[in-house]
């Protein structure tokens, strides 16, 4: 589904990604772990198409197409979704309005009919239950004045509504208490199908107790320095990152 080859990316004149290779198949969950500053979030942003990051070398193929040639909205319309580490507040636009606009745009792109407000409300009822969100959240402005946990749940709600083929969760666990973490993880797990895939970017192993990965990658200084099964995450939890970083420097 996703094939990243020798990806290099620069932001503000500084090279952050220095040759990433990663292959994700449908039905898989990949965890990308690593210390602060290793390039985890940059990788997520580059895949989603953030204009501030410049790709200087390498290729990314998504379902056989050149992902890097697509605008951010086209990537989303083709089923890519990024759950933001810091979801953006948009005062003045209600959550329900924003979600319906996005949902209809994606349906349009897929050649499906747009939904009317009534059917959309029914869909929302179902999806809100998934992330244990109160209906009142829908009438509030997007993320505006939301607590950290509410923002993260709102990201997963959007993911539930948009039903992406490839979801990237960028440090969705940061700033969450254990209850909120469980709700978010349950939401993500219930959206898993053999047709879609998930990349979980995280600093901690804790989230991976709830969202169990098929493959764990360790990112350090812009490169993937080790890949392994879910045991690798436990080993990182026990030993930290330093032993791998020494290996990378050597």
């Amino acid at each position: 589904m996703l094939e990243i080859m020798d990806l290099h990316a620069v932001v503000g004149g500084k090279e952050i990604l220095k040759g990433i290779n990663l292959s994700v198949n449908a039905g898989e969950v990949h965890a990308v772990m690593g210390p602060n500053g290793s390039g985890k979030s940059t990788l997520a942003q580059v895949l989603a198409g953030h204009p501030a990051y410049e790709v200087t070398a390498g290729t990314v193929t998504y379902d056989g197409e050149d992902l890097l040639a697509m605008d951010a909205e086209v990537r989303a319309q083709k089923g890519l979704f990024l759950a933001f580490q810091y979801p953006v507040e948009i005062p003045g636009v209600s959550n329900a309005y924003f979600l319906r606009a996005a949902y209809n745009e994606i349906r349009k792109a897929r050649g499906e009919e747009e939904v009317d407000p009534m059917s959309f409300a029914d869909l929302m009822d179902e999806k809100m239950a998934l992330v244990e969100m109160d209906g009142a959240m829908l009438t509030r402005s997007v993320n505006s004045g939301f607590s950290g946990g509410e923002k993260k749940r709102n990201e997963i709600l959007q993911m539930a509504v948009l039903e992406p083929r490839l979801a990237i969760l960028d440090e969705t666990d940061s700033g969450l208490d254990i209850d909120a973490l469980r709700i978010v993880a349950n939401g993500v797990n219930s959206l898993r199908t053999p047709q879609n895939a998930t990349i979980v970017v995280t600093h901690y192993q804790r989230l991976l107790n709830h969202i169990v990965p098929d493959v764990v990658h360790v990112l350090a200084a812009g490169r993937i320095v080790r890949s392994g099964g879910k045991e690798l995450a436990l080993e990182l939890e026990a030993r930290g990152y330093d032993w791998l970083l020494e290996g990378a420097a050597a």
Binding site: A48, E73, R75, P87, V88, E105, A109
Partner: peptide, 13 residues
């Protein structure tokens, strides 16, 4: 620009 990117990342043109 951040908000623009956020909206685009949800498929909004």
């Amino acid at each position: 620009e951040t908000a623009l990117f956020y909206m685009k990342s949800r498929g909004v043109n």
